[in-house]
Amino acid sequence: MRGKENREKLIQLFLLTIALSAISILALISIFIFTEGLPIMFRHGFKKFLFSLDWYPSEGYFGLLPMIIGSLLVTAGAMVIGVPLGLAGAIYLTQFSSKKVRNLVKPMIELLAGIPSVVYGFIGVVILVPFVRENFGGPGFSVFTASIILGIMILPTILSISIDSLMALPPSYREGSIALGATQWQTVRMVLLPAARSGIIASLILGLGRAVGETMAVIMIAGNATALPRSILDPVRTLTSNIALEMGYVSGEHRQALFATGVILFIIIMILNTMANLTSKRMAS
C-alpha cells in the first residue's frame, strides 16, 4: 500500500515538472533574447536604437526607428483591411445567414488559416505587386501591398474568434431586442456587438499580434528599404524582416543589433499577449 502511494506522489511530481515546461521555455526564450540584445542597447544607448533613423549596422549605426514605423504602418494597414472583412463575415454568418451556410463557411475559412505565410507572400509577389505597380505607381513592393496581404492573413483569426464570441451570447439577448420591435441590424449594433465586445476585442488583438509577428510574407512583398516611406506606395522594412533578412550572414555587433530588434519585437508581442489574456479573462467572468 505504501509503495503505491509513493508511486502516485512520484507521478504527480513528474507531471508537475512537465507542466512547468511551457513557462520554462518562455523564460528561456526571454533570457536568451534579452542577454543577446540588451548589452548592445546599453552600450549605444536606448535612445539611439529607438529614435535614430540610420541603420548602417556595419558602421555602428543601429537606428531602428524606420523598422518600428514600418511595423506600425503595415500592421495598421492590415487592420484596416482585415477588421472590416472579418467582422462583417462574423456578423453576417451569425445573424443573417442560415445555419447550414455558417456550418459550411466557418470551417472553410478556418481551414484556409492553415495556408502558410510563404504562400501568401508568393501570391503577393506574382499577383498583387505587379497590379499595384501598374495601377497605383511606385515599385509595387510597398506598405500598401503588404497591408493587403497581411489583412487577408489575419482575416480567419478575427472572423473565427468573433463568430465564437457572438455565438456564445445567450439567445435571450437577441430575442428580447427583436421582441421590442428592433430590426436585426439594430439588435446587432445596439445589443449583440456591445455584449460580445471583449471577445471581439480579443480577436482583434490576436490578429494584431499575428500581423506584427509575420515575417516571411512581409519580406517578400514590403520591399525592405530602410528609408522612411513617404507614401503608402513606398517600400518599407519591418522589425521582423530586419531580423530575418540579415540573420543569415552576420556576426559580432551587427548580430547583437538583430537581437536588439528581437527584444523590441518581443516586448511589443508580450504587451499584446497580456492584453488579449486580460480581455478574454474578462469575457469569461
Binding site: 511551457a22 521555455i25 537581437f259 497580456t274
Partner: peptide
C-alpha cells in the same frame, strides 16, 4: 493560471523569435 499564461504567451510569440532563440541556443 501561471502555467496557462505561459502557454498562451508562448503561442503568441512570432516564429522569427523562435528562430532567433533556436539559432542562439
Amino acid at each position: 493560471r501561471i502555467i496557462r499564461f505561459g502557454s498562451e504567451c508562448l503561442a503568441g510569440i512570432p516564429s522569427i523569435i523562435f528562430g532567433l532563440f533556436g539559432f542562439i541556443l
